[in-house]
Amino acid sequence: MPITHYIILSLALFSIGIVGVLTRRNAIIIFMCIELMLNAVNLLLVAFSKMHNYAAIKAAADQKLPITEAILNTGSEGQIFVFFIMVVAAAEVTVGLAIIVMMYRNIHSVDVNFLNRLKH
């Protein structure tokens, strides 16, 4: 598959996430859209990781070089990164949901329009 397809797919998912953030008032949905955006980015990272891995192995094979461990490892950083993003996202969700619960407990709503005290 051309990498462009993955780029466009990821961008589309990301933009859908943004549209969600912009159009919804429910804090939980907004939060979910953020997760969606994170996943779009993850997808792109994995695609790039795979692309680099493939390119490295192919180049080595074309030049009849021995395929070493280092070449096989090319691009693993991207996937490790995705792993860490997931870790952070999990932590973020924990705290974020706690905050939303707290907010619900205080104003009995999850509507972000009630949270307009940023201007004070």
Binding site: I18, L22, V112, L115, L118, K119
Partner: peptide, 14 residues
């Protein structure tokens, strides 16, 4: 512009 509404801030950011 400074409405305090998170939504409008995000919109502007986008």
């Amino acid at each position: 512009l400074q409405s305090g509404q998170v939504g409008s801030y995000v919109l502007l950011m986008v």
